[in-house]
Amino acid sequence: MEHAERELQWVAWMRAATAGDEPAYRQLLESLAEHLRRTVRYRVARMGQGDLEVEDIVQETLLAIHLKRHTWRSGEPVSPWVAAISRNKTIDVLRRRGRRCESPLDEADDADLTVRDAAEEGTGQDLERVLGALDERARRIVQLVSIEGHSSRTAAQKVGMSEGALRVALHRSLKTLAARWRDGGQ
């Protein structure tokens, strides 16, 4: 019952967001973040990968959901769509971490190595690190809009761009972040 209610709420928010309702979209993302945190934590623990940064996977998944939101078809349920993106991203992150510590000499111990290396790595790839892929102005825009909480209009005034140009730059930055994240951070 709880799932059904949540699904209805998500669909309502998703529809509103498609129509340009920013507060509804924000509520949807917050709810999805909470949901993802729970499922990713569970999934990662079950795979015996408890040392991985759950929050990093949550954030990368949220970014993917955002950039791919046009692939959700109005009239379809939101949960399976979110689950598919989340699964894809979790596998992606685990594979990436595995690859980073792959030893060409000793392939048999791959699974052990993955766990050990992840433990040593601590925080792992995070958003701060991929932000380094952006040029200075793009990074400033991201900072103004996220951490300092400016609207796109006031952020545009701060960096001396038109609001339209800022929107384009912001979207492009998010795509760059996603690509850099996927390719392994640095």
């Binding site: 955002h66 809009v145 996220s146 909480g149």
Partner: peptide, 10 residues
């Protein structure tokens, strides 16, 4: 991050 994503209307 949610703030950032919500502002991206493209």
């Amino acid at each position: 991050l949610v703030d950032l994503l919500a502002r991206d209307t493209t």
